[in-house]
Design a protein around this nucleic acid. Structure first.
Lengths: 135, 135
DNA sequence: TTCATCTGTAATATTTATTATTACAGTACA
DNA sequence: TGTACTGTAATAATAAATATTACAGATGAA
């Protein structure tokens, strides 16, 4: 996991507070303090995951695709994770060692459990819940 | 998080199966398929966290510092994590934006909750539990 | 219809983090 | 006193994340 979860959550929280008004990637980039192209890239990803809608052209910009009550932080987590926060080494352990030849399998299985647990926890928090913290 | 959790777990599982015999960093590196110096570095970290003991000199090497029933994967997690698997952007969000100026605080708080949840889950699995999977 | 302002995306550069390597001093045992 | 280890620092190489630039395409307004 990396800063993408933070950025995505920041973006969505902004859109939650926009009350349906479209926000441009430039405006959002200003609040996040990041490059507009990077923000558009993340917005593009969030759109592919059905969390935001975009409109091109002169009066274009971004809005949430559905009510913030229907978006959970688990959705955000699923959208931004390319891989599990738990990494695997690129090196294959030694196949002749009884531990080495099985360790990846067991670690992967453990990671899946942990990941499921994280998702379960995050699914209990909606974007509306999170956004209401900002007054 | 990164591959260090995997490597540390691999090391400890090897030592669990050693039945008290000392293993050298060279031997361990062979199973993990990594550089002995890297393994020693992680072992040094595990020693600082009280999970392994080391012996220098000609017949030196590494052993577990206590019974595998008394080591949980949460201990391993705590030992290897330099930071939470959830990252924060280096860029400070814009302080004039109501969302930007508070988002870090709320995200950090959320990360702490998630991290605690991960630890709770991992604390239920001892090294003995994990090591018994290897037959 | 043409200009301004936006999205979408690719290509690339930069920075940061991770992992690997080398080297060697210090320790302990035979 | 030589051999086989650990401990650790310094550095190199690699990989991943982030930032930047550029521009085609869309849309609405003058």
């Amino acid at each position: 996991m990396n800063a993408r979860f933070q950025i995505a959550t920041h973006i969505l929280t902004l859109l939650y507070h926009s009350n349906g008004e479209v926000y441009s990637s430039d405006y959002i980039a200003g609040s996040v303090n990041a490059n507009p192209a990077l923000i558009r890239k993340e917005l593009s990803n969030l759109r592919k995951h059905g969390l935001v809608e975009s409109k091109e052209g002169k009066t274009g910009g971004y809005t949430l695709s559905k009510a913030a009550e229907l978006i959970t932080l688990a959705d955000v987590y699923a959208a931004v994770k390319s891989a599990s926060p738990f990494g695997l080494a690129k090196n294959q352990p030694h196949p002749d060692c009884p531990v080495g030849k099985q360790v990846n399998k067991h670690i992967v299985s453990l990671y899946e459990d942990v990941d499921q647990n994280i998702s379960n926890q995050l699914s209990k928090i909606t974007l509306a819940d999170f956004g209401k913290k900002f007054v």
